[in-house]
């Protein structure tokens, strides 16, 4: 069971209060009629589905009923951060890789 921090309620709440609503930061094409079928399919159906760091949307269904974003590891299931809609993640696969490298360097 996840405990997830809602950035709007500013509290840790249980997973069952939330609904998962898919990959975050997918931008709807500005002019759908102007793009190819492949580009539209890419927007609607195709996902990055990474094994590792994933930026995703959650909906606080049994709480404030607002959408927010989370950065979660799909392998360890660790929720690294949650942040409000419109904000960008402070933790990404790249920043974590850099942090891990410097940690290893420090240990040796």
């Amino acid at each position: 069971m996840h405990h997830i921090y809602c950035p709007y309620c500013e509290e840790m709440r249980e997973e069952e209060e939330y609904s998962y609503t898919g990959e975050a930061h997918i931008e709807r094409p500005k002019d759908p009629a102007a793009i190819s079928d492949e580009a539209w399919a890419n927007y609607i159906f195709f996902r990055s589905n990474p094994r590792g760091i994933h930026h995703e949307m959650w909906y606080h269904a049994a709480g404030c009923r607002r959408y927010f974003n989370a950065t979660r590891d799909t392998q360890s299931y660790k929720v690294h951060e949650t942040y409000k809609m419109g904000e960008m993640p402070s933790i990404t696969a790249q920043t974590l890789a850099v942090a891990n490298l410097s940690e290893k360097g420090g240990a040796s």
Binding site: M1, E15, Y20, N49, R51, R72, T74, Q75, S76
Partner: peptide, 11 residues
């Protein structure tokens, strides 16, 4: 939600 952990939620 997406996951590769080969385990699921208790709920």
């Amino acid at each position: 939600y997406n996951g590769y952990g080969q385990r699921g939620s208790f709920n």
